[in-house]
């Protein structure tokens, strides 16, 4: 499996994948996508990643990958890149549209409001520890995209983990905790795909 390694918390994702028994390729060049069974788009700065995807000529093959519905996991900035609509982003920001969602960048506020909590992901069993860092908010989920996990807020339950076909996205960082269930989910998806 590949981890997009242009910028961000690449190391943590690679470590999580290795913990579930996966051989990891750090992807910095377009040809490295060939032969992969799944790809992870890590946390980082989505505007930076967007620019680097283009300059590294990975944007086009990655768009084709996502359009074909191949196994993909995006966390935080990775979720932003997978969205079909981005609020508070840059106009020229890359949008892969693998998930039918609208995200609002930094929708939980600046770093001082970054937080840890637990989220409910019923299909994966017990609640999951979750770290949100200048996290995007999923403000709309279209038909065809399934809500896997929610966060209880003062304004009601809110989607924080979604899936459409073989593509999964989280607004939090499963790679920053020891819980590898989201990475295992990607392995299971890739096995069936």
């Amino acid at each position: 499996m590949g981890v997009l390694a242009l910028q961000g918390d690449v190391r943590e994702h690679a470590a999580a994948l290795r913990r579930v028994g996966v051989t990891v390729v750090l992807v910095k060049r377009p040809e490295q996508l060939e032969g992969l069974s799944a790809i992870v788009l890590p946390g980082g700065e989505s505007t930076t990643l967007s620019m680097l995807l283009e300059s590294s000529r990975i944007l086009e093959p990655l768009s084709a990958w996502v359009n074909a519905g191949r196994p993909t996991l995006g966390t935080c900035a990775g979720l932003v890149m997978l969205a079909s609509n981005i609020e508070d982003g840059r106009a020229d920001q890359a949008k892969l549209s693998g998930l039918g969602i609208t995200v609002r960048r930094n929708g939980f506020g600046r770093q001082r409001f970054s937080f840890e909590t637990s989220v409910e992901i019923p299909s994966l069993g017990s609640p999951m520890e979750a770290v949100f860092i200048r996290a995007p908010r999923i403000v709309d989920v279209e038909q065809g995209t399934e809500i896997l996990g929610v966060l209880e807020t003062e304004a009601g339950a809110e989607a924080v983990c979604v899936q459409k076909g073989n593509i999964v996205g989280c607004s939090f960082h499963p790679e920053l905790t020891d819980d590898v269930r989201i990475h295992q989910l990607l392995v299971d998806i890739a096995r069936c795909a």
């Binding site: 961000g8 700065e45 937080f115 909590t117 949100f132 807020t153 920053l176």
Partner: peptide, 21 residues
């Protein structure tokens, strides 16, 4: 969020992790 902890080491070091590269 209904329950949250801010300013933890994981949250603070986590932003630095996101800036890597």
């Amino acid at each position: 969020p209904s329950s949250r902890t801010t300013g933890t080491v994981r949250v603070k070091r986590g932003l630095a992790d996101m800036l890597r590269g």
